[in-house]
């Protein structure tokens, strides 16, 4: 592992992030400026209502001056290209502007606060899911690789194929219908009970709310992992070093978890990170079904309220995490696979 490689990879990731934010700025600049202008007009209106003892001419003057001033501050008077550059810089520095109608839990109007508030909840749900699905997939896959063609092996591959076209949110709807409304086992959504429990119960309450979304994600998630691990392990088990390990009289467990797993570990880790990217890519809106207050639900609410700044803020943060995932993937690969050297 070479630190120069790490630094270069992270820098490359950051450059790609900047480039993508620039592309977003090109696509969304027009509509974001529209909301910015509307916000400015509203702000001026508010200020003018506070004015006392002024003539209509002074009013008009005030409006003109104030507008010019604010347009200057938000770079709205500059040529298009420069405005896009400013927009890119603002977005990279997390200055997404004010939300049109959404508020964060702390009543902040900043789009940034709304999105950052949701971020930990998404991370909590999806990393827990990935850890569980990954573990189940790993062990099931290795077990299947020992007996290819067995009943569990074949059902795992069928499960993997079926889960490809199974929308997680639909399974969520079905599970909710069964476990929240028919049999009232789980809460019907959200992350906290009202009133908020104290102490250890606070965390147990979160776990209780997380249970059903988590079960849904795991039920869909582990099949694909098991299938990938199984395919990797089956080919690794045919290698000579496995035969020689067995010939030396090593116990089968050691052959499987020591030799085989070590060989396929780079690819298995890749799978784990790809799962994370998949969650960010497609599973996010799943949160809306369970009213789980994460990034995905912010998309739903922002859409309903047509809050464009929050949408773009959410997209930028999602992209940032996504790219961090991609970079992490490369680094892990380089770390686990000694053949990949710095500069490759």
């Amino acid at each position: 592992m070479n630190w120069r490689y790490v630094a270069r990879r992270i820098l490359a990731g950051f450059l790609i992030y900047v480039l993508i934010i620039f592309i977003y700025s090109c696509i969304f600049n027009a509509v974001l400026e529209e909301t910015a202008r509307a916000n400015i007009e509203e702000q001026i209106m508010q200020e003018m209502m506070g004015l006392r003892n002024v003539t209509p001419e002074q009013m008009a003057n005030y409006r003109e001056n104030r507008r010019a001033e604010l347009y200057d501050r938000y770079h709205l008077n500059e040529p298009v290209f420069q405005r896009i550059i400013w927009r890119t810089i603002d977005t990279i520095t997390f200055n997404y502007g004010r939300a049109t109608s959404m508020r964060s839990a702390s009543q902040s109007q900043e789009a940034r606060d709304i999105v950052f508030e949701a971020l930990p909840n998404s991370i909590l749900l999806f990393t827990t899911d990935i850890l569980i699905s990954f573990t189940i997939g790993l062990f099931l896959g290795l077990k299947n690789a020992q007996k290819p063609g067995s009943l569990t092996d074949r059902s795992t591959s069928i499960g993997a194929l079926v889960s490809m076209g199974l929308p997680s949110w639909w399974l969520g709807m079905v599970f909710m219908m069964i476990f929240c409304y028919t049999f009232k086992i789980f809460p019907t959504g959200g992350i906290h009970s009202v009133p908020l429990p104290q102490g250890i119960y606070y965390y147990l309450d979160i776990l209780y709310h997380m249970a059903l979304p988590l079960i849904t994600l795991v039920v869909i998630g582990f099949w694909g992992n098991a299938y990938i691990v199984r395919n990797l392990a089956v080919s690794a088990l045919q290698e000579d070093f496995v035969t020689s390990a067995r010939a030396r009289g090593l116990p089968e467990r050691k052959v499987l978890y020591g030799h085989t797993l070590r060989t396929i570990s780079p690819a298995v880790m890749t799978m784990g990170v790809l799962m994370l990217l998949g969650s960010i890519g497609g599973n996010l809106i799943f949160e809306g079904i369970f009213s789980w207050p994460g990034l995905g639900r912010v998309y739903w609410v922002a859409l309903q309220q047509n809050d464009i700044p929050v949408l773009v803020a959410d997209l930028s943060i999602t992209t940032g995490i996504f790219i961090m995932g991609v970079v992490f993937l490369d680094l892990i690969y380089g770390f686990l696979d000694p053949r990949i050297k710095a500069g490759d």
Binding site: I20, I27, L277, I280, G282, Y299, T319
Partner: peptide, 19 residues
């Protein structure tokens, strides 16, 4: 390819389709 693969497609589709 690296740029394209670094964009989360679904969130991007949400925002484009919304606007």
């Amino acid at each position: 390819y690296e740029v394209v693969v670094s964009m989360p497609l679904f969130p991007l589709m949400i925002v484009i389709a919304a606007i």
